[in-house]
Amino acid sequence: MLINKWYKTFSEKDTFFLGKKIASHLKPGDAICLEGDLGTGKTVLTKGIAEGLGIKEPVTSPSFTIVNTYEGRTKLHHFDVYRIDDPEELYAIGWDEYFSDDAITVVEWGDKVLNIMPADTICIKITKDERNPDRRIINIERPNIK
């Protein structure tokens, strides 16, 4: 399993393929909190997850619409809560309904709203390697399940 491990990626392509690998371990109902600064590759990792779930259409940034939904082998809800300051704003667009047993939900900037994500959320944190702007360190953990 990939949980409680960390990975190093050396390019955008690497990050994409890690996403694809993560997808093969996911099951319907899983929720992912994606943490990382602007430009670290959160959307790239999500694109990999989407491809791994058999989603054919292009996955684009949901910054504008807050959430995009894709149909694959499993349905994928892709959130970007960058602009959300108050969790109430998410309840107003039906937040709870997105975390259903038949879908996988990925939330970019999810660390901002982790307190209202499901208890067994998988946390993925992407950090830049200070010494090389193309390298990333990617931590995967599920804090509430030991």
Partner: peptide
């Protein structure tokens, strides 16, 4: 004030 579109406020 918020640096972007805020869905609840917008609605």
């Amino acid at each position: 004030e918020y640096g972007g579109v805020v869905p609840e406020i917008a609605s």
